[in-house]
Design a protein around this nucleic acid. Structure first.
Lengths: 219, 219
DNA sequence: TCGCAATGTGACTGATCGGTCACCTTCAGT
DNA sequence: ACTGAAGGTGACCGATCAGTCACATTGCGA
């Protein structure tokens, strides 16, 4: 039982890794199962033993992995972040998210691109499930926001919209400053920020302090 | 000269319209030239008389149209917006953008989805040109921001990053509150905002006033 | 050691679709 | 009216790829 099943899980993971990388590199539509099989070092037929639903089941399994990763990040972050100032908690969360997506570029591209595509092109039930997972994940940011609103520490606004806004700005800034992957010549020069920490500060400043609230007298 | 050429332009426009709608509905990869031809009420071969580069040339022509539309919107907006308070100017711009994309959903989906896809999957030169058009377009928002920064009205931050942030938040909120197009059942309920104006206020409040700056004493 | 059940495999198939081209229609100029 | 060039057309072609299946391989139990 153990040996066999452990191997099975390892193979499944290898396939998921290959699929994740390829879907991110070439896009779901352009990646072929032959390539996935080749990269995972299995025959194509074997993919169908592990993912009978074929290419689409593979994609959803990849999504599940990505959301699990994000949820783990949120859970871990908020577990250690009690009773610190809300702005600091979210500044660090934003920095963590930037780091997470920066290390794990495949996750980043899949979440901004393929989730989007499924939402737009996919059929009802599948999309609904996907959106629900996405919203559940993002909703993990909401409770501390609500608490802070109740405590009067931050402005009262729809918490769900604020959570989506934070996530959206993380993705947006990464998009803005990492338009690669293979980055042609005339790009990348004017990115404004050198480090992910600077980027996190920028996002935090805009979202928490606002453009209008001037820091000091200013010139 | 006149009659013939006018017709030619009208046909070209009809093809572009059909392609825009179909690319937005089904995605570039899934839309077929047969469908485009059918919807435009032309034979497929005719497409190649107007767009010898085939499907890809058609896509880039569609992009050009979309960016032209956005540029016209920016130009028109800033032409009438001298010496009003910067926050009001951008609140109205955000409302206009929301309205523009809301009316012109195809433009919205293409800009968030297919431009993204080209950036990630397309080859060097094509992507560079596309990014340049996008950046030129968004850059039209920068000058008034720089002026306001120089005047000390708003916080000094990288203007390009701020402009991309504004645009990104417009797109992000539309994404958040219109996940259709065909909208399955379990969705759409929890959108937080009833009107585009409320949405514009939300974005403006977050970006200009910030979450931390409390309006009045608050409870 | 043998046999068989479980699993791996990749050549094959059917469907799809971008792009082509030989033919047809239209219409401006005479 | 006639004619020829310009432009429209859709059946066709070749390439691609998801998914299948008959066969090979593996490893466990006896």
């Amino acid at each position: 039982m153990s040996r066999r099943e452990r191997e099975r899980l390892a193979r499944r993971a290898a396939m998921l890794d290959a699929a994740t990388a390829l879907f991110a590199e070439k896009g779901y539509a352009s990646a072929t199962l032959d390539e996935v099989a080749e990269r995972a070092e299995f025959g194509k037929g074997t993919l169908y033993n592990y993912f009978p639903g074929g290419k689409e089941e593979l994609l959803f399994a990849v999504f599940d992995d990505l959301f699990d990763g994000l949820r783990a990040l949120f859970a871990e972050h908020f577990a250690h972040a009690d009773d610190r100032p809300i702005r600091a908690v979210y500044r660090d969360l934003i920095a963590r998210l930037l780091h997470h997506f920066s290390v794990n570029q495949a996750a980043f591209y899949l979440l901004i691109k393929e989730v989007q595509r499924m939402v737009i092109e996919g059929d009802g039930a599948k999309v609904a499930g996907l959106m629900q997972r996405r919203d559940e994940t993002i909703a993990m940011m909401e409770a501390p926001l609500r608490d802070a609103m109740d405590a009067g520490t931050i402005r009262r606004l729809p918490a769900s919209a604020v959570a989506h806004t934070i996530m959206g700005n993380v993705k947006g800034m990464l998009m803005y400053l990492e338009p690669p992957p293979d980055c042609p010549e005339p790009y990348a020069a004017q990115t404004s920020f050198q480090t992910l920490d600077e980027t996190a500060d920028f996002i935090t400043t805009i979202l928490f302090d606002g453009l209008c609230a001037l820091p000091e007298s200013n010139a």
